[in-house]
Design a protein around this nucleic acid. Structure first.
Lengths: 227, 227
DNA sequence: AGGCTCTATGTTGTTAACAGTTAACAATTA
DNA sequence: TAATTGTTAACTGTTAACAACATAGAGCCT
């Protein structure tokens, strides 16, 4: 078997496999296609087409789809194939409710377990986000926001929780009503962040979980209103 | 077109044939083997052996294992195969924390959405459990307890939440320190149930979620202490 | 004995081919 | 024209075979 020069990134990774199996590579590739929107909700996933595109056989792709099915990103219909899951409004609301509960738990755990250094870090991130908001730098705000939530999740020290949370966030990408964060909402959103960090600094579990809960639901409102 | 006596089930049979792919059958079979303990934590799942045992080929079994991997019941190691997941104490504690958060959410949702009829039903179940506890009828208590929690979950009206909850409960079967409910604990456990229903009847969201939360963690304590 | 290489065997990863189903389209009929 | 019926092409479900890898054990050396 020889390597062709102009191959896509996925193809390259297939070439240099040793620890990674084709299934896991296919899974990540398809997952990324879904999250980036290259495949959008309702689209059919053609096994043969994907297989030839990746220069592999259908087996690994079928396995990947099974995994993604349980992750809620793909829907398998017998004799008809795999479709990218369509996320209705009600389903998204359901997921946001679960997200809210998990986020509240993060708050409780952080109050118990967060080191002072981690809280410092969170404060700094809020400051940086404030600056980004002032400058209307949406990209920076977006990635800082991600880092803020990742830092909190890491501090909670519960890997299962983190996995479920990631799962839900990925599924919510299927509910695209555009605009993740609207311009005018940046300061409002960050005010909530600051409020959250204050509760954490005071080691107030009730306040922390309540404010995180509110933050999630406010995000839901912002998303829905930006229809 | 006339209706034949036996043709009523034709549509059903077609529907079953549609939904029953070998993969889904294998998945349910393996899942059951894991939950019942026929396969216990750490056991290796031999694809070929299972395939010959089920009289099918390895393909569907591999797909089933991929699905179960994402469900947290199976662990896949490259070039080495699938193992039944081993659940360490810390992982079980993590899952119980998530379970606690989800259960608290059930309480909040029930306060908002539960019909009076459903609350009646819950009250009756508590009474029946009390009777079963008096008679030391462990089996009855066990199934009533299941029904109690299922009823609450159904009343919460959130299918995603229910799926995640089920997932977690299935995983926790891998953490077998025997004794699900100890004899002496039946009345204690049911007192918590009654306490929960009271909060629901008063439509007190805070109390309901707090008591459900406590109930889960008490269950964890009972399980750990029954080492 | 203890440790090493090397072979043999079984198991997994991957592929290709076959069989059954679906869906779209052409052909037929009224 | 509209509806129904063949017909075909494409796709999925499943299987069987091949290649790559891992493990256990025999034999060998020190």
């Amino acid at each position: 078997m020889r390597k062709e020069p102009g191959s896509v990134s996925a193809l390259e990774r297939i070439g240099q496999r040793r620890s990674n199996t084709l299934t896991s590579i296919a899974k990540e590739a398809i997952e990324e296609m879904i999250i980036t929107g290259e495949l959008s909700a309702g689209d059919r996933i053609n096994e043969s087409a994907l297989a030839t595109r990746f220069n592999i056989s259908r087996g690994p792709i079928r396995e990947a789809c099974r995994s993604l099915e349980h992750a809620g990103l793909v829907r398998n219909v017998t004799n008809q194939g795999a479709y990218v899951r369509e996320m209705k409004l009600d389903e998204a609301r359901e997921l946001y409710e679960v997200r809210r509960a998990l986020t509240a738990l993060v708050g409780q755990l952080l109050v118990e377990r967060a080191s002072d250094e981690l809280l410092d870090e969170l404060e700094q991130l809020v400051d940086q986000m404030s600056k980004a908001a002032d400058e209307d730098d949406l990209d920076s705000y977006y990635s800082l926001n991600l880092e803020f939530h990742d830092t909190m999740m890491a501090g909670a020290g519960n890997a299962s929780l983190a996995r479920y949370y990631d799962d839900i966030v990925k599924q919510l990408h299927l509910f695209r009503r555009r605009g993740l964060v609207q311009r005018g909402n940046l300061h409002a959103s960050n005010a909530e962040h600051r409020h959250i960090v204050e509760a954490l600094l005071q080691r107030d579990a009730t306040a922390a979980s309540e404010r995180l809960s509110d933050h999630v639901m406010a995000g839901w409102q912002r998303m829905v209103e930006a229809s």
